[in-house]
């Protein structure tokens, strides 16, 4: 068993999670919470701690949309593109977002704000009833912060 090592956050996370049942997702979440992504060098230690092959660990990371394998940009925008938001013009919002400024914009399929569509998320912050004006206002503030 790996001993907790405070210099190495990945080793510390593995050590504190490896004995719980079904530990792989909780470990990956903890690493991403800490480092904002899952670095490739984490795969080997995770695999050996959980007695899995590297391919199995890689397979899990690549299966789930949420896990990132490279550092994300400072700000991330997720625009809901599922049916309810489509009915309120999320496609137009998406086009607008892509054409204005150099944000990292990704689609997301449902934020659970379907009665206040269209919805989006800037980093961890939810926003609903997002008009094009509201989008510009919110992202302008974003520019000021960074």
């Amino acid at each position: 068993m790996n001993l907790p090592c405070h210099n190495d956050p990945i080793a510390a996370i593995i050590a504190s999670h490896q004995l719980i049942p079904g530990a792989l997702l909780p470990i990956l979440h903890a690493i991403q919470d800490e480092l904002r992504f899952i670095p490739p060098e984490a795969i080997g230690p995770i695999a050996s701690a959980l007695n899995l092959s590297r391919a199995e660990v890689h397979g899990v990371i690549s299966f789930y949309h949420y896990f990132l394998t490279s550092p994300p940009p400072a700000h991330q925008i997720h625009i809901c593109c599922a049916e309810a938001c489509q009915s309120m013009g999320s496609e137009r919002l998406m086009q607008h977002a892509k054409s204005t400024g150099d944000f990292s914009v990704h689609p997301v399929y449902c934020l659970g704000l379907c009665a206040n569509s269209p919805a989006m998320m800037i980093d961890d912050q939810l926003h609903a009833r997002v008009t094009l004006d509201k989008f510009d206002r919110l992202t302008e503030m974003l520019g000021d912060q960074s």
């Binding site: 079904g22 997702l25 959980l50 397979g59 789930y64 949420y66 896990f67």
Partner: peptide
């Protein structure tokens, strides 16, 4: 336990796979 953005994990057996630490 926190999911990881896979719609299919709402299917009960895929969810169980995910809980066990595998692909959904």
């Amino acid at each position: 336990r926190k999911g990881a953005g896979a719609y299919v994990c709402g299917e009960e057996t895929a969810l169980l796979e995910s809980l066990e630490g595998r692909r959904g």
